[in-house]
Each structure stands twice: as C-alpha cells, then as structure tokens.
Simulated scan of single mutants.
Amino acid sequence: MIAVEACSFSLRGAPLLSQVSLALRPGRVTAIVGPNGAGKSTLLGLMAGALRPTAGRVTLAGQDLRGWTPQELARRRAVVSQKVSVAMPMTVRQVVTLGRQPWRATPARAGDAAAVAEAISAAGITHLADRDHAALSGGEQQRCHWARALAQLAPMPLGGLLLLDEPTASLDLGHAAALLRRLRGLAAAQGTGIALVLHDLNQARFVADEVVLLEAGRIVAQGSAAEVLRPRLLEPVYAVRFHAVGDSILADYGAALRDAG
C-alpha cells in the first residue's frame, strides 16, 4: 500500500499541495480529478517517489519511500507519465521490454518474453510491435508505454501498484474504454492498486472505487464516485454547471458559453 500522510509540496516557494492524505490499496482504483493546476500530477509524482514532500511523508508498505532503492520501488510499482520521451531509436517491442529491467537479476527474468508478448497484446499494439516508437501517433505511443507498465507489473505479488497520469488523454473513445476495462480487470483479478489522474469525470465514474477531488492543492472531496461526482461539489470547483443524467455527469457547456458571452 502507498500512503500519503499529511503531505504538502512547494516549488520555489509556491505551494502546490497542502496537507493531502490518501491511501492506495491493493485491488482498488483511485481516480484523482480536478481543474488545471489543482495539483493532480504533483500528487501522483509524490506517490511515485519522483517528488519529495515539503512536509509530511509518503510510505510504501509502511516504509518511507526514501528508504527504498529505485530498483526496489520499480519491483513494486509501475508509472506511466503524461509524456515519455525515448532518447534513441527503438521499436515498440524494445520499449515494452524496458519494463522488464527491474527483474534482470531475479528468477522472474525467465518470463520476460511471455510478459512482453502478453503486454503488447493486451494494449492492442501487436501490429505495431516492430515499428519505430518515434513514428507512432501520440495515442499509439501512449498505448506503448501502457504496455511497458503491464510488462513491468507481470511478476509482482498481488499485482503491485500502478500510477498513471492522464492515460486516456491521447486515446480515442474505443481505446480509452479498453484501457479502463483493463484497469478494472487488473484491480479485480490481480489485486493491483491503481491511481490515475483523469480529466473526464465520466471515465472516473466508470473506473474508480474512490475519487479524490482536488482544488488549489487541497482535497475538496474524497469518497466513492457517487459521493464525489455530484453537481453541488463539482460546480464551485470547475466554475461550470453540471447535470446528473443517469449514471453520467454532464457539464453544461452551453450555459458556460452563454455566461462567458
């Protein structure tokens, strides 16, 4: 389990997060939502260990992240960032294989080929496996790095932990739905603990066991999707009117445009 305990984070004196607490548990999906600049990616960076809190602490299995080596962390959690650059020419298969690096000196290395093949298939990019990563569209690159994370997760006990920053941002509707279904499957069948940053509130409603709503670096609401994704909570945060329609939450763009006019 990753636990964020009363964490604050400042950059060059500017506070980006203030007194944030949450726990990422095995078998559960947590969606982090909020407007631009709310601190969503910063929070994910703290959970990944890429950033260190100015105050508070982040723990993995009860131990401060600073007590884990990068190799140990990589054997317990995988991260898919918003933008991932590949410094040299590599095929999709080679990029996905990078996910197996944490397991090089372990018995799990024997399963590298199978894990890579399964991850490529699960991400729906088998037809791209021998293509140059740089020649792919943004959405195809995103699916490539999603496959890399799946390959990394393959031997983790209880499915490990998976952190994703806007994983559906470049995907069309079909591929976004497929990825979200896969996330639900990882959590339910393999016990993977998942946290993901999303802008699409209906995607959060579909995929998440828990939703964390951020505004200006603070948690405004935290709970189930049904509890958090309500017009009365969302409207003051986004400054847009919302309507609950069945299982969906719809932003009233018409009203927003009229108000802006």
Results as ranks from 00 to 15, higher is better:
G124I: 05
A87Q: 14
D112R: 10
A255Q: 12
L60A: 07
G45A: 13
R232I: 01
A55R: 15
M88E: 08
G193I: 01
V237F: 07
A3W: 02
S137I: 08
G56R: 03
P70E: 06
L214V: 02
R181A: 05
A87M: 07
G185C: 09
G217T: 00
R75I: 03
A204V: 05
A221C: 07
E5L: 07
G49L: 07
L198W: 05
R232N: 15
L179I: 01
D64Y: 04
R76S: 10
R181T: 04
E166Q: 10
T54P: 12
L60V: 03
A204E: 07
S170K: 02
A134D: 11
G261R: 15
T91R: 03
G62N: 04
A134G: 13
D252Q: 08
G217E: 00
E210C: 11
L153R: 10
G111L: 02
A61H: 13
V79Y: 03
P102A: 04
V4G: 11
P107M: 13
T54I: 07
R143G: 05
Q71A: 10
R75T: 02
A61D: 13
G261K: 12
Q190T: 09
Q222N: 08
R181F: 02
Q19W: 03
A178G: 04
A74T: 11
L162H: 01
A256P: 01
M47V: 02
R181C: 04
P15F: 00
R104T: 07
D209F: 09
R25G: 01
L213E: 03
Q19R: 13
W146N: 01
A110M: 07
S8W: 00
T126D: 11
H199Q: 10
S8I: 00
A6W: 00
A135C: 08
L43S: 11
V92L: 10
V84H: 03
R77V: 00
R241F: 06
P26L: 03
R181N: 10
R205F: 05
T54E: 05
A48R: 04
L44V: 12
R93V: 06
I120N: 06
P26R: 06
V92S: 11
L162P: 15
D172C: 12
V80N: 06
S224V: 08
L22T: 03
R205V: 02
